[in-house]
Structures are given as C-alpha cells and as structure tokens.
C-alpha cells in the first residue's frame, strides 16, 4: 500500500458514505420535493468524489482525463434534471406535504394553466 492507494481508498469511502446518506434520505423523507433535495445533493457529490479518486489513481493519462471531464458533465446533468423533475411534479399536481409553511408558486401555476385553457378553447 503506497500513498496513492490510500488516498484513492479514502476518497472512495467518502463517496460511498455520502451516497448512503442520500439513499437513506430517498427512503425516509415524506414527499417528492424533499426526496429530490437530499438525493440530488448527496448522490451528486458522492459520485464526484468517486470519479476524483479515479483521477488520483490513474494520474493524467486517458482514463484520468476522461473521469475529470465526467465531473462537470455529471454536475450539470444532475442539477438541470432535478430542476426539471421538480417543475414537472408541480405541474402534474403533486401537493407539498404536511408541515408546509409557505407556498408562493401556486398562484403562478394557476395563472399559467388558465392561460393554457384560454388558448385551447378557440
């Protein structure tokens, strides 16, 4: 075991641990939006940590550079996907769960749907 392998194993363990937190949140939390929060944040950073361990292990040859390119790709894909899923779920009609304090988005969605209905009738 030299120092490169030790850093690789530590980064891998951190990544899998964060993935575990994200998946526990996916199972435990009460409604769609909260599940999306915990799962997106934790699983994205955990997988970024795993890919970073590949960069440490292989150095700057082709595999290392490929996994370094994959990190921003994964980051943008995950955040844009989370935003699209949250918006789609709200328009689909999933209400916010129990204990909700404040909901500013409802009026905007109602205005938008009224506009669509007016557009469809004539």
């Amino acid at each position: 075991m030299n120092s490169t392998s030790i850093i690789t194993v530590v980064l891998l363990c951190i990544g899998v641990l964060f993935n575990l937190f994200g998946c526990i949140g996916l199972v435990r939390l009460p409604d769609v939006y909260n599940r999306l929060q915990s799962a997106t944040k934790c699983v994205t950073l955990g997988t970024c940590s795993i890919l970073l361990s590949l960069v440490v292990y292989f150095g700057f040859n082709d595999t290392g550079v490929k996994s370094l390119v994959a990190i921003p790709l994964l980051f943008f894909a995950s955040t844009v996907g989370a935003h699209a899923l949250a918006r789609g779920a709200y328009y689909f009609g999933v209400k916010l769960g129990e204990g909700t304090v404040k909901d500013d988005y409802k009026e905007q969605v109602e205005i938008e749907e009224k506009k669509q209905q007016l557009h469809e009738i004539p």
Binding site: F21, I24, G25, G99, T100, V101, D104
Partner: peptide, 22 residues
Amino acid sequence: ANFDVAYRVLHPAMPIKPGIVK
C-alpha cells in the same frame, strides 16, 4: 450542504419545515 442533509436525514425526528419562496 452535504453535512446539513446528512444531519436532517439521520436525526430521528427529521427537523424539516418545507416551503416554496419567491
């Protein structure tokens, strides 16, 4: 952010108070 989410998930009572703000 990750430690914050981990705290909320692993806490037995789950201290969440969700809402949408503008």
